[in-house]
């Protein structure tokens, strides 16, 4: 472990923590524009977090200690995920600790904790949300794994560092299998981040909500942490997508100075990606919960076809 490595590691986590709410704010703003509404300011998520942190914590009377631990655990998992994914530099001391499969495991861990917490209070909506979240999760998780695998088949490695290094620092090549993986990844990210058409982040209509149902009983600093964690998740997914499909500009291990260049580039890519996400969301309608298996099943099968194409073409 060297000093620049440690520095880039810390910088990455801090940047993720700082930028994640901004990304959420940007997507919300774009969405409002597209819907012809007056947009909230870009800093709205920060204000919301600040307000929530200051509010009194209201707990259900029989909530267990698991319930109180979960916001911290979920937040920690998401922060770790942001630390693992190479966003600015591939020289990260933590990256050997977790490869692509472990990253999926990390997301799954956070999801399981959040679902368990939602079941803890024992209201109808909490358990309903937990069930739906796990339903989406068990379909999205293998799809995500297969997306990462089709990239891994190209590089013969599941290490995220090697993957990004390969795609970013080799001569330009087109990988047809990544086309499939890219579509599948988009579908999975929409589902995993509770976006339309799978879930509506802006709804509080009890019967249709998934992610909001999980958070229904949370308040104060717990809610702030979970909201922040949701932003971090969106950030992590966006960065993972960018790292896999548009990796140009990520600094490699030998040139830590390049991180300075990498940051504006990342910001530009995220701005574009967020706008695209808002466009995708406004262009589609929310689907019934039992259409979701079909939706995610397509993602899963597309990723599998991607791997098949890879084996057939050999690239």
């Amino acid at each position: 472990m060297n000093a620049p490595g440690l520095f880039s590691q810390l910088l990455e986590v801090l940047i993720a923590l700082a930028l994640a709410p901004l990304l959420t704010g940007w997507v919300n703003q774009c969405r409002a524009w597209l819907l012809n509404k007056s947009a909230p300011p870009l800093t709205q998520p920060y204000r919301k977090l600040h307000k929530l942190f200051h509010k009194e914590l209201v707990l259900a009377e029989h909530a267990s200690s698991l319930y109180r631990a979960v916001p911290y655990l979920v937040f920690g998992c998401m922060a770790l995920a942001c630390a693992i994914i190479p966003t600015l530099s591939t020289d990260l001391p933590l990256s050997p600790a977790a490869d692509a499969v472990a990253l999926v495991g990390l997301f799954a861990l956070a999801r399981v904790f959040q679902s368990l917490a939602a079941m803890d209070v024992g209201t109808a909506f909490g358990t309903l949300g937990a069930r739906r979240e796990m339903l989406i999760g068990f379909l999205a998780e293998p799809a995500l794994l297969m997306v990462l695998f089709s990239a891994s088949l190209l590089s013969r490695s599941t290490s995220l560092t090697t993957l990004v290094d390969l795609f970013a620092h080799r001569e330009l090549a087109i990988y047809p299998s990544l086309a499939f993986a890219g579509v599948a990844f988009t579908l999975v990210s929409l589902a995993e981040n509770a976006r339309i058409p799978v879930d509506n982040p802006a709804t509080h209509l009890e019967l249709t909500m998934v992610h909001e149902a999980l958070l229904l009983e949370y308040s104060g600093r717990h809610l702030a942490l979970l909201e922040w964690a949701a932003s971090l998740k969106l950030f992590a997914y966006s960065c993972a997508g960018l790292a896999l499909f548009f990796p140009w500009g990520i600094a490699d291990a030998r040139t830590p100075q390049a991180m300075l260049l990498a940051l504006p580039l990342l910001a530009a890519k995220l701005t574009l990606g967020g706008a695209l996400l808002a466009l995708l969301e406004t262009a589609s309608a929310k689907m019934r919960i039992f259409r979701v298996p079909e939706f995610l099943g397509s993602a899963f099968l597309l990723a599998v076809i991607g791997m098949l194409v890879n084996i057939l073409l050999g690239v």
């Binding site: 209201v58 209070v121 209201t123 109808a124 229904l216």
Partner: peptide, 10 residues
């Protein structure tokens, strides 16, 4: 600060 209340009954 923390206060315990019955869960929200919608």
């Amino acid at each position: 600060r923390l206060s315990r209340v019955p869960p929200w009954d919608c």
